[in-house]
Design a protein around this nucleic acid. Sequence first.
RNA 1: AGCGAGGUAGGGUAGUCAGGAUAUCCCGACGGGCUCAUAACCCGUAGAUCGAUGGUUCAAAUCCAUCCCUCGCUACCA
Length: 662
Amino acid sequence: MNPPPLLVTCGLPYTNGPCHLGHLRTYVPADAYVRYMRRAGEEVVFVCGSDNHGTPIVVSAEEAGVSPRALSERYHTHFDETFKRMEVIFDRFGMTDDPATHHRTKEIVSRLTKNGYIYKQIVHQAYCTKCKRFLPDRYVEGVCPHCGTPARGDECDQGCGRHLEPGEIKDPVCKVCGTKAEFRDQEHYFFKLSEFKEFLLTYLETLRGTSNARNYAIGWIKDELHDWCITRTLEWGVKFPGRDDLVVYVWVDAPIGYIAFTEEWAKKAGKDWKRYWCNENRVTHFIGGDIIYHHSIFWPALLQAAGYGVPHAIVASGMVKVDDHKFSKSRGYVVWTNDDYLDKGLPADYLRYYLLAYTSHTKELNFSWKVFSERINNEVVNIFGNFVYRTLFFAHKEFNGVPSCPVDPAITAEIEKSLETVDGYMREYEFKGAVDAIMALAAFGNTYIQTQGPWKLIKTDREASAQVVRNCIQIAHAVTLLIQPVMPAKAQECWAMLGYTDSVADHPLGDATRPVPETSINAPSPLFAKMDDDQVKELDALLQKRVAQANKKMETIPMVTFEEFQKLDIRTGKVLSAEPVPKSNKLLKLQVDIGGEIRQIVAGMQQFYKPEELAGRDVVVVTNLAPAKIFGVESNGMILAAGDSASLLVPLRPVEPGSRIR
RNA sequence: AGCGAGGUAGGGUAGUCAGGAUAUCCCGACGGGCUCAUAACCCGUAGAUCGAUGGUUCAAAUCCAUCCCUCGCUACCA
């Protein structure tokens, strides 16, 4: 029996911002993989779509003054067009807000309910009376119920790292307006994820793809697995079946989008989508390393619970850094696909090559214009481009085409060896290894033509010279076929220069060893343009300018009104005692007299002051700062200090503790 | 804090599971040769306390222990 067909998906871009280099780190390798597997004879379907739901989109849409749907459509079109410009070609690029995803999500959730994996529970959910809405996930901040450190709505991000279910967080505050939120009882639905521990452990052992996806998930599951609340109180999203007031959590309908997009494609193509998703399958998810949890834990459990087939492979890419800085839109360390790259007239193929050849797929990629241009010029232009050009130039000049003689078996063997090497790497998702092997074949060609010197041979032995040229053309032909998944447009150009009139994409990789027909060859033109230093400087300057502007913007703190300033109660205080907070290396616990009242305040100044030198000092304290638990210790105020070394602000002349600062 | 992934010349890597002698290869830098070509290729040079410390061993990048740093989970996110 034939293996099931390959279905490849990419993590869904979220429709609240434009496409950047980080996205491409996942999409370009996925596209190259799909192109390669197709040419290796596999039946492959490649689907993706935009992720439209969730609170961040609602908030962004409000800010932009449009509906969430309109905002989603705007970015959806943007991604669709940008991917096409980058030659990332999906069979279907859908939207999770389209009917197919709504329909499939409801069907799956109903199945989960029917199969007994969903239960109802009342949760106390944070509600902002000012914004008049429930505050999901990242829109609420407060204190972790487990360890007492400040935490976000869905996760104790600074403390114990535990996932928090809605309603668990203590002392919630609305992140949008800063108002103290109140808890309101709300009925929610939970998915029994905890029941899938054993299943997942067995499943993950056989999961294919990159090891980071597997190891990360296994480590997580061995620890503990909580049930997941899969509903949110929101208008925008897929309605939970039978409840008009609840939508499903975006991480439910987003991956279900993969199925829905397959359905949409299948309907149009007259195929059966069930072949791809039910029973044995070869679903391969290309994702960014930041969403491994959802894809290798939550998603397989959900599919299993609903009676679908589970994913065959998860390929998780490493993150992107820019100029050795963490990727950050707000700090300016970002490369926008359109504005910074394509609109500057740079070929998509260069960036595709760079992304695939830079480093192993799972490792961090550090982008810089300098390295980018270096690698393009030295590898793509000088090694590959030059080899093809010098070969065809000479063939045209001296033989007016492909010389008529058989290809040397040693050359065919060398090509076969490359085919095998590349194939091994591609099937292990080692794209760098594959690209290196292709370039090694081009380098072999250069060495071969150099050592044989057909330009010398032709003076004494025309036949021998013809043989060398014949062999070189065969190598160029093989390299072109192999590089096509990486650089589709350039490969096609090169293909035409070799005298072909059809599409290189229609040729199986095995054709690499098939002799090139003895056609005439036109005068070749250089395939690639080098990136010159001025251009590189200009591109780099643009990036540096953006970083500088972002820094400036971050330094600019908005004005406050006098009334807002008046809200702060700043007083002098006298430190009565100080002691280190256990287990912390920076924190001191202080007892401060602020005039008739002793306050406990935690301050991060252990590395600057010894506890005994603080006792008895006059200090300046913000007394009406909201209380917080830091390392499990309650802190009721803030000691004011200046600069990185925490130089304490002190009254110049003696004052009574509790004197108001104005 | 925890859990994952990492740390090998300026950049990128191989080697680590199965310990073995001058630590691999590619790019870059420098010098020379050659020249059909947008130049490649050849020869040579410099550049690495293999994250740190301790241990096991005749022998450690590799095994063990402890620690440090970076990244992810953890605004903005693939």
